[in-house]
Simulated scan of single mutants.
Amino acid sequence: MRGEQTGRTPRVPVTALFPPPPSAGVPGDPGVCPGEQFRRVTAERVTVLGGPAAILLQIAHPLVAEGVAVHSRYAEGPARRLVGTLQAALTVTFGDTGQAHAAARHVGRAHAPVRGTTRTAVPGTPAGTPYRANDPDLALWVHATLVWTARRVTERYAGVRLTPAERERHWQESKPFARMFAVPDRVLPQTAADFDAYVRTTLAGLVVTDDARRIAHDILTQRTTPPLPGAAAAARAVTADLLPSPLAAAYGIPRTPARRAAARALRTATTTVRPALPQRVALWPHALVAARRGPHDLRAALSTA
């Protein structure tokens, strides 16, 4: 089984967790995701803390878990795959039009072969249920996990509290990003309130399968070089803090008193330090490159960061 390969998982250089920005791009090209609020939230480097939680939300959908278990190779280097996903998302959000489309096409080619039928039955999903990575409903759930997690991380770990109007803008401005990853308008919730209702409804129907638990274990026990003592424990604490409690418990990372305390200490540290950090530290370099490329609205939005 894939989970049994964890002991042989290659170590990942810590530098791999800090992907470099793309080239400057075409001057004045706003890219495909020009919305200030969406890019303002995505620009926060602290969003990397939500990567494992977003993946665990995705694979709690049995059809997503089946596709990842059969077609992916997370056990051979889960952190590298997370970094690749992060790089694609940052390039689509902050790259120029050509860079964004190239990144989305690369992801699309990787997803094209991911299709099949489920091997075993789980509650609500009979054996033999067909799935494909570019199914609009599955693509919507993957997009929703990224939007929901980014918003939750920035509010809890960067102290960026969004007003109802800002939440609405954030959702509306995320739609061009969704379209780049095969999410058609017909399945996108119209408003932020509709989006929140969709997430609540979907969460109620999720099932954490054995495949999902194995994938989660590989993600949450990834090793680095040089070793980072306590990093895995911190990742589990943050992931438990971000996930809904029933899901965290289903993955075997319940919100124990120790995890609650660790997450609370990290939240206090990040929200206290964040206002004093220079932009080059607090924000992804992709955002700063986009701000220099123009137009100036992003530069103005980031100036408040």
Rank of each mutant, 00 (worst) to 15 (best):
R40L: 15
F38W: 14
L63W: 05
P20F: 01
L140P: 03
C33L: 12
A104E: 10
A144I: 01
G50F: 11
P22H: 12
G51A: 15
Q87R: 15
L49Q: 07
V83H: 02
G51P: 00
A133S: 13
T154N: 03
G124V: 06
R80H: 11
A103V: 10
E36N: 13
P126I: 04
L140Y: 09
T125N: 04
Y157I: 04
V64D: 01
P123V: 06
L57G: 12
L146H: 13
E155T: 13
F38L: 05
N134L: 14
S72N: 12
V142N: 07
W148R: 14
P19I: 08
Q58T: 04
L82G: 15
V114K: 05
G116Y: 02
A100Q: 09
D137H: 15
A144P: 02
R80Y: 05
A53D: 08
H101D: 11
G35E: 04
P19G: 10
V107Q: 08
T93F: 10
V46R: 14
G28D: 10
A89F: 12
T97S: 15
A89I: 00
T154F: 04
Q87C: 01
G51F: 11
G25F: 11
I59Q: 03
V147Q: 07
E66H: 06
V83W: 04
Q58S: 12
L63V: 06
Y131V: 06
A88G: 02
N134F: 07
P136D: 09
T47S: 12
P123T: 06
E44S: 13
E155P: 00
A103R: 13
V92L: 13
A110W: 03
P78H: 01
A110G: 12
Q99I: 05
A79P: 00
G128E: 08
T120G: 00
G95C: 07
A110D: 03
G77K: 00
P22L: 12
A102I: 02
Q37T: 15
R151V: 02
R105F: 09
V64R: 03
G50A: 08
G128C: 05
V92D: 03
L56Y: 07
R156V: 02
R81S: 01
S23E: 14
V26F: 06
G67P: 03
P62N: 07
W148H: 15
I55C: 12
A144H: 04
R105V: 13
V48Y: 12
W141H: 11
F18Q: 09
